[in-house]
Design a binder for these strands. Structure first.
Lengths: 255, 255
DNA sequence: TATGGCAAGTTGTTATGACATTATCATCTC
DNA sequence: GAGATGATAATGTCATAACAACTTGCCATA
């Protein structure tokens, strides 16, 4: 056990160039540095981080600021805290923290070249189900999309989406050149929350053709409602992924 | 827009009986009350919560305490905050926040009667892959489990798990009567983090029989490594679920 | 040798206080 | 009427300070 509890003192150099009066919060900068040390192995799995009080003194920061920095990393599942003992690094290989991004952004972030085949771009009247998901009246106009996403020219997903009336003017070319969330961001939308249901089912004949897989293959599915920074629904989607090419990484952190 | 931004003042009665010197933190009690108001519709979707400063004054609490209470709910994806505007309720039907629990606990929490068929309980030497997942040396003894989980006597999942050496004494009867995490908790384990990969694949012939589904059906899969409060891996599992009976609800919240 | 008590160590909670940043609204000027 | 400016409103960041609760180690006593 002694080995697991070894305290690791991070070098001063790691925090030497914190920008004290720039736009980036200090707690964020400190958490980035500590996280970097974890990912690089400088703060090895099982070891203890220097205590909050000492770290704050060393960095010339208040304890709440240091606590906040550490809490950011705890929330990512990389550190765990224990009263009386200290803060330890979680074992195991670290997976990328899942972000509220579109598949396009995901693929780009993992060094793949995303591309898009636009199958459908139309205005349709919301049925009861879509109306409920988007919190709009049944029958009100919505933008309906259907696309195939490819990574390095291999089809990965079939994606069907519905957006509220205000997005009806989105151009086909934008959807081909960019991910949907990029397009929404360029229109000033700030995405804050997504509620997702992940499941599986057999592929339809059409999906099998679009994804270049055998008929009746297993598909990984994800239904999503995304909300902006005023709490309003801005997108509902039903996505189907090839499970050999895509999966979901989820980290759960207990309070 | 005016309608969406209506401020809702929660009645004093909602906070009347906060226990000021009990073991439960004040921020936690306040967040529970606000969450209750959201779930009951008293704080309707799109409306604004009373501002932090006023709420603190009204409740006789400091602003950081109120902020902490609100942040708990923001982290669950039920509220969104905007500087200069306030805190709004996210639209849409609320799903249960996913917790770090076993399927047994999940089922119990959704008023189903869980039961277990224990297929395998044995000690095996960890191969390279399991050794890596559990951070134990290849070849070291691990507890290997294979079970079918039923809900109301219908098979829902086939679950295969590996646990480190210290749990080798777990009794078969415990695993039949309780969920795995219950058993670990009763042994003093505090679970803090789980890393999960969710995917899909076709069922094997054996799985099809165990789950009472057609051959080559789609299965929803989840691989999980769970860590305790010292950051040590305490379980690796590979679970397969019937997608018609089980899916994953995941809420993503952007910082 | 085993048990209990106490001190030290570390995180957890809460408070007071101050200032910064963003958003909205009202007013003024052209 | 449109744009700019200033005031107000509300969240975001950071600091100082104090106390509580849990964990571990050491020492004294039976």
């Amino acid at each position: 056990m002694a080995m697991d509890k070894q305290e690791t003192i991070l070098p001063n150099g790691l925090f030497m160039d914190l920008e004290r009066s720039g736009p980036i919060p200090l707690y964020f900068q400190v958490s980035q540095r500590i996280e970097k040390a974890i990912l690089s192995g400088e703060l090895p799995a099982g070891s203890r981080l220097e205590n909050e009080v000492a770290l704050g003194e060393r960095l010339g920061l208040s304890r709440p600021t240091v606590r906040r920095a550490i809490q950011e990393i705890v929330d990512k599942g990389l550190l765990v805290r224990r009263r009386g003992i200290g803060t330890q690094v979680v074992h195991g290989q670290v997976t990328r923290k899942v972000e509220l991004t579109s598949l396009y952004d995901d693929l780009t972030n993992t060094q793949k070249v995303p591309s898009t085949t636009l199958l459908v771009l139309e205005t349709v009247a919301a049925d009861a189900s879509i109306g409920e998901k988007l919190a709009v009246a049944e029958g009100s106009p919505t933008l309906h999309l259907r696309r195939v996403r490819l990574a390095d020219d291999v089809p990965v997903a079939v994606m069907e989406n519905w957006l509220p009336e205000e997005f009806i003017g989105i151009e086909p070319d934008d959807l081909v050149q960019h991910g949907l969330y990029q397009v929404l961001r360029s229109r000033g939308v700030t995405m804050r929350v997504a509620r997702q249901r992940i499941g599986a089912r057999k592929s339809t004949a059409e999906e099998s053709a679009l994804l270049d897989i055998d008929k009746n293959s297993a598909l990984l599915t994800m239904d999503r409602t995304a909300f902006d920074n005023s709490g309003r629904a801005v997108e509902f989607g039903h996505h189907c992924y090839r499970p050999d090419l895509y999966s979901f990484e989820v980290t759960l952190v207990e309070k």
